[in-house]
């Protein structure tokens, strides 16, 4: 979980960096970047690795979740034990599932629409079109909240699992964690809003 999580967080950072070029407007670096990624051959295997990473992460997550069911054959009558757990940790399997569902839609919307269109597509136009629909924007914004939640659990947990979050580094990792779970989703979330309200053309 931790290693794939780390990989996916790195990917998110890359994705965000790229997306921020959207602020340059049409004919900015974003489209060229997208063109490059869409056509450069070496990117293909990297794409598969990325898919693999996602798949492994969700398989492992599902596996852990499955294995841990039934470890308490009879539930407590009063549900009080979960009160002490951070909401994001308690819900990580569910936020993860929602993110997966979103991902399918997201890929259809952008990845499949551009790669399998049969002709070159200007990614900027595609994105701008998508974010001209308020419903899409609302759904995306909800997703980013969920993503933040997922990262809130996941980021520190990955250091915990790798054995790095010892007494000495606990504070530091949790502080860096704030940057990750708060700033990454915020960065993503700003894009549709800015585009819709006309910040980038």
């Amino acid at each position: 979980m931790a290693l794939t999580g780390f990989f996916l967080v790195s990917f998110l950072m890359f994705h965000l960096t790229m997306n921020l070029f959207l602020f340059e407007g049409s004919r900015g670096s974003f489209s060229s970047f997208a063109d490059f990624l869409g056509t450069f051959p070496i990117v293909r295997p990297i794409e598969w690795i990325l898919f693999g990473g996602f798949l492994l992460h969700l398989l492992l997550g599902g596996f852990v979740w499955l294995m841990n069911r039934g470890v308490r054959p009879q539930a407590y009558k009063v549900k009080g034990t979960s009160k002490t757990i951070k909401l994001s940790s308690r819900l990580s399997i569910y936020t993860g599932t929602l993110i997966l569902a979103f991902l399918v839609w997201h890929l259809i919307q952008f990845f499949i629409a551009s790669r399998f269109a049969g002709h070159p597509v200007d990614m900027f136009v595609l994105v701008a079109q998508a974010f001209s629909n308020p419903v899409t924007i609302v759904l995306y914004e909800i997703l980013f909240v969920i993503l933040g939640f997922h990262l809130n659990h996941g980021f520190q947990a990955l250091f915990q699992s790798l054995g790095l979050r010892t007494a000495k580094y606990r504070g530091f990792i949790d502080a860096v964690g704030v940057i990750v779970w708060l700033l990454i989703p915020l960065g993503f979330a700003s894009i549709p809003l800015v585009m819709y309200f006309g910040g980038a053309r």
Binding site: V64, W65, M67, N68, V71, T81, S82, T84, I85, K86, S89, R90, S92, H153, Q156, A157, Q160, S161
Partner: peptide
């Protein structure tokens, strides 16, 4: 022994 695995919820530390 059949204990579950850790998913870093930290419920244990709190209690």
């Amino acid at each position: 022994e059949g204990f579950g695995s850790c998913s870093n919820t930290y419920a244990c530390e709190a209690k």
